[in-house]
Design a protein around this nucleic acid. Structure first.
Lengths: 398, 398
DNA sequence: AAACTTTGTTTATCCACTAGACAAACAAAA
DNA sequence: TTTTGTTTGTCTAGTGGATAAACAAAGTTT
């Protein structure tokens, strides 16, 4: 019957406790006094909330800090090893798994490559990956707080994978399978959304609140951080910008549409164009992004031109993004980010020529620093946030 | 020094009071008991908050309602005449002003048409409009709560009009001018943003939370309602989708870019295409939207084809919007909405052919019902919301 | 050594919400 | 008509969390 959330002192306490914890998380090491002045909470309130957090072992006291002209403060630190999180980036032909602490630091990491596997075979690889990471998890208070999986496809808000064309998957309920097997909270998220979140939490997006993360791999996916949090749309399918029309009546796309952005600016487009241009690979091998990068590094003009063209087309779509969202930052991530060197110039050219001056104000264009790890770190971070939320709910009942 | 908002019992009270007021606003007439069960608040809490609201004359008691098998409830009603709001839609060649009550009902309305006026002349027309509407405002407890103005251009978050190309304005601080003169809170907002808000509050968007409002007039502007509230981007310039590239290397646009959507799907495009196709107006007059509509109504095949083409191109951009936002509803508003009859079919054709099935789930495509009033109503509603926010702040100090 | 600062705890007080008692007003059944 | 039960809205006591202010401990400065 309760339709809306009511506000009472329990909620107040939970919010303030979360506020204190987050302050410690982001500004650690910090004293109680500093928390009070930063948050505006009363010293006494901070003291009592801190002592609860100490009891829950989510934070701990280190030795005394430097005096500011009076009694020396007791420094508080976030106990990043109170629990661990598993994040897996499920790519088209690889599986990247990371084990992180609650601060997003990678404790263990494993990559498995494969090709043309069936769903069942990939599921098995996933189990192996999780088992491996679990075996390498140190002892901790809360253990593994959750498993996150990033997939290159559309995921509904309930966690079902509706369509992952490059994997050939349709309506796969991986979330349930994993939750049944491991009895842990499992989060399935689109790879671009996960990447955006990863960059926001740990990467170049840390200090920004309006971020568009453009994941340029075999296709193009986009993750939206609006007002500091992930925007997923009505059902969770936002950010399918790879299928934005940039050429009406252009090349047919598998999606049914024509002139889609990813037909002109993705790794897929790069390789196709390179083939047409006459670039050849060694020993009848297929042309790959890595090969083209090595050519470009050796100064191969034709290869560099190929990258320049991709950069130009990236610029077209990014212009659209700027006009749509007026973002603070655009991050280009995933595999194509390795080609930053040759993409930057043509991309910025498009922008300065075609974007209105006020849209360019304080606009950052960055390439991912986490590179191929942003997705895995992102999904791991989802589980961590989820853990803290559940933790709050729990203390709600008590 | 206070960086974040802290939660204490004052906040709790303010939030709950707002919750009660909003419940009355949307579900009026309603009894105290019903409010309690709907919100989850305790009966006593509701009683005391209601008595405060009664004191502030924001609500009033009507007679007893129908019994539900016991004592008859006292019905509460929102006092929509506790104050009034002025909303003005400043178009390229017209000025539409409305006086609304706190519920958004239009009490008075006036439209002024003009052509090629300077900024100073338009300013004067604005003053006349406000003066006129003020004179026609009934006596009330709070009087006029604010003035809102919607403009066809880019407005910064501080309210400055940075660029209104169709008016020929640049860096105009209208907000300050109006506030100085009338000593009332003034809100300047982009016309599409205002329209989106208007539709969300009073129009076809009432029951939706992820709405993309596409204002198709001389140009194209877009207002974004995400998670139930207006998204403005980092500096307030979001929704400039009229300048989204849908044809790389296409026609040059005044904005510096090429192949912009509004070159293919706006009123401007319609008129240009019609001229090229050989359609003529009566007596050397210019071809207008109204004229083309009247032709289409008479069954003129050529005119209908012109609309169909616009509808088709609208579909291209709307496909991009769907892929970007996964919205719940798309509303097509402003002048072009009058041509709904001929636009719908080609638009929906594009969609069903080119949009993935899961993106079309529960997706509403609507034409504005408020038609040309959505902007004016939207800015008026901004002032109303602002009034309630300020009201809360005020009681914060006491 | 004295005076002042800073830190963190403790105490008393305040305030909003809740639970539950209560009275008034009404409907339905006996 | 009387009785019983329900609904509505008010009132009172009690709870829990925040705040302000006092205080002790541990520093620095003069």
């Amino acid at each position: 019957m309760k339709k809306t959330r009511t506000w009472n002192q329990h909620v107040v306490k939970k919010e303030n406790k979360a506020l204190v914890l987050n302050t410690i998380r982001s500004r650690s090491p910090i004293s109680r006094a500093d928390i009070a002045s930063m948050t505006g909470l009363n010293k006494g309130t901070v003291s009592s909330l801190v002592s609860e957090l100490l009891g829950e072992q989510l934070i701990y006291e280190s030795g005394p800090g430097e005096s500011n002209g009076g009694r020396r403060p007791v420094m508080l630190l976030f106990n990043q090893h109170a629990g661990f999180s598993i994040g897996i980036d499920l790519g088209v032909n690889y599986l990247l798994g990371v084990l992180t602490d609650l601060e997003g630091n990678i404790c263990h990491e494993k990559i498995v490559k494969f090709k043309d596997l069936s769903y069942e075979e990939i599921e098995l690889k996933l189990f192996e990956m999780v088992d491996y990471l679990m075996k390498h998890t140190p002892e901790s208070v809360y253990g593994i707080v959750g498993i996150g999986i990033g997939v290159p496809g559309t995921v509904s808000k309930s966690g079902e994978i509706l369509l992952a064309p490059n994997l050939g998957w349709k309506n796969v309920d991986l979330k349930n399978v994993m939750e049944e097997k491991y009895k842990l909270p499992v989060i399935i998220e689109n790879e671009a959304n996960a990447g955006a979140y990863g960059e926001k939490q740990f990467g170049v997006g840390k200090d920004f609140n309006h971020i568009i993360y453009v994941s340029v791999g075999i296709g193009i996916g986009v993750g939206l951080i609006l007002n500091g949090s992930l925007y997923k749309g009505h059902h969770g399918f936002s950010g399918e910008l790879g299928h934005m029309t940039i050429e009406t009546g252009g090349t047919k796309c598998r999606c049914g549409n024509e002139g889609c952005w990813e037909l002109y600016a993705s790794e897929q487009a790069l390789v196709k164009n390179a083939e047409k241009s006459g670039i050849t690979a060694i020993q009848n091998d297929e042309i790959s992004l890595e090969w083209l990068i090595s050519l470009a590094e050796d100064g191969d003009v034709e290869a560099i031109n190929q990258f320049k063209q991709i950069g130009d087309y990236l610029g077209v779509g990014i212009n659209n993004i700027i006009n749509t969202f007026n973002p603070e930052q655009i991050i280009i991530g995933n595999r194509m980010a390795f080609a930053e060197e040759w993409l930057t110039e043509p991309l910025k050219n498009r922008m300065t020529k075609q974007t209105l001056w006020f849209q360019q104000q304080d606009l950052q264009i960055n390439f991912s620093e986490l590179s191929t790890h942003s997705s895995a770190l992102g999904v791991a971070a989802f589980s961590v946030e989820n853990f803290f939320l559940l933790d709050k709910e729990k203390s709600n009942v008590m």
